[in-house]
Amino acid sequence: MFAPDLAGHHAIRQRLLARLQAGQIRGSLLFTGPEGIGKRRVALELARRELCFRRNACGQCEGCRMVMGDDLPFELPNLLRIVPEGKAGVIRIDQVREGLDSDHQPRFSRGVIEWASLSPPVGCHRWILVEEAHRLHENSANLLLKTLEEPPPDTHFILVTHRPEALLQTIRSRCERIPFAPLGPEEAWAVAVQNGWTEADRPRWTALGEGGLRFLDEAAFRRAEAQVEAWLALLQGRPFSEAGQALLPEKDSPLAQSEQLRQPLELLLRLLADLARIRAGEAPGLDPWRAALEDLAAQPRDLRPPQEAALESLRHLPRNLSPEPLLREVGLSLQGA
């Protein structure tokens, strides 16, 4: 009945299917929840089901294969994908208006609004999937407002984001919000095992992922691991020049510096929250690092200054062009705590 290669979220998927079959699904939906838990794949399942020869997202037929794999087309008979592009990692207005990629070569023949107004294929709806919708440029978001409020018949927008607070309020107000919870530990680990992970990495992989799958890529996981170790070393008093290199953005990464900086700052906030939990007699979320955290929690340090420094840095990430001074400043707040 559902895509066999998609883990979890059965209740949400059942409700969406029932409403779709009853003609009661809203024209604009906002899928929210933690990063890497499968929100995008649930959205793709709706389009995939309509192309499936068996109409159940079987994953075996030619119709399903069109909506599967890493190299997913930007346009399918019933699906249009809008994704962030370029080094800045934003969804620009020309992508919405003209459907151009970063080299100004057409990926599809019409802009989003015109594409949405076309009649869908027989037996299908038209789905417009806006991935990482929090990266919509303000002009792009404003251009979409009217269409989001009143999409053409049988056309549905699905905006997917783990940062709904970064979307314009006018966008959020025009969409029905569908909140997604993290996967259960066993569900997430079952997917990890299918992707080659072994039991030796399970404790750290599960703790870092928090019910998500964003660390299925080993390089991403090892980088997050190194960032936790770097913050612990800074908390223990080591200088930034020795311990902080793992926190800096990678120069050859396709992600913007601001997006790369978000992960280490969020990891620091998790570590600080765990120190507070240990002091309160509770178990830390990052339990594989419990021994180091317990030693740090026993020290008489004020956790508020580094928390405030990390939160302030996160608020100003889009405008910050100097990652090393920013991270050094946060690191100094740890030394003085």
Rank of each mutant, 00 (worst) to 15 (best):
G285Q: 15
R301S: 06
R277N: 05
L272H: 07
Q263F: 01
P305H: 05
I278W: 04
R290F: 04
E250R: 10
L293V: 04
D274G: 04
E294Q: 15
Q263E: 13
D302K: 11
G281P: 14
E250F: 00
Q260K: 00
E266R: 12
S258Y: 02
R277H: 07
L269P: 02
P254Y: 00
A256D: 03
P305Y: 02
S258M: 00
Q257M: 03
R279H: 12
G281D: 06
A276T: 07
L271R: 12
R301D: 00
D302E: 15
E266I: 02
R277W: 11
L255D: 04
A283T: 15
E282N: 08
L303P: 09
A273P: 03
L296K: 08
R270N: 04
K251V: 02
A280K: 05
L268Y: 05
Q307E: 14
Q263C: 07
R290I: 03
S253I: 08
E259M: 02
G281R: 02
S258P: 00
E282P: 01
P254I: 01
P305C: 04
R301F: 14
L275T: 12
P284V: 07
P254G: 00
R304F: 14
D287A: 15
E294T: 09
A298L: 11
W289H: 09
P264T: 06
R301A: 11
A291L: 13
L271Q: 08
R262C: 03
L267G: 09
L286H: 09
E250Y: 01
L296V: 05
Q299H: 13
E259Q: 06
A283F: 11
Q257I: 01
L296F: 14
P305R: 12
I278C: 11
R262N: 01
P300W: 14
A276M: 08
L269E: 14
L255E: 15
R301K: 14
G285A: 13
Q307I: 04
R301G: 10
L268S: 12
L267S: 08
L272F: 13
A298F: 04
A298G: 11
L265I: 10
E259N: 01
I278V: 09
G285R: 15
L293F: 11
A280G: 14
P300V: 04
E294Y: 07
R262A: 12
E259K: 00
P284N: 14
A283H: 14
L269G: 04
A298E: 14
A283P: 07
L268W: 06
E266Y: 11
R290S: 08
L286V: 09
P306H: 05
P284M: 07
E250Q: 15
A298W: 08
S253M: 03
P288M: 10
E259T: 01
P288Q: 08
R301V: 15
S258G: 00
R270H: 09
L269T: 02
A291N: 07
W289D: 06
Q307L: 06
Q257K: 00
L265C: 06
P306G: 10
E282F: 14
L275F: 13
R290D: 13
L271Y: 12
D274E: 12
P264V: 07
P305K: 04
A292Y: 02
G285F: 02
L296C: 11
A297C: 13
L261Q: 09
E250G: 02
A280L: 13
L293C: 10
L267F: 06
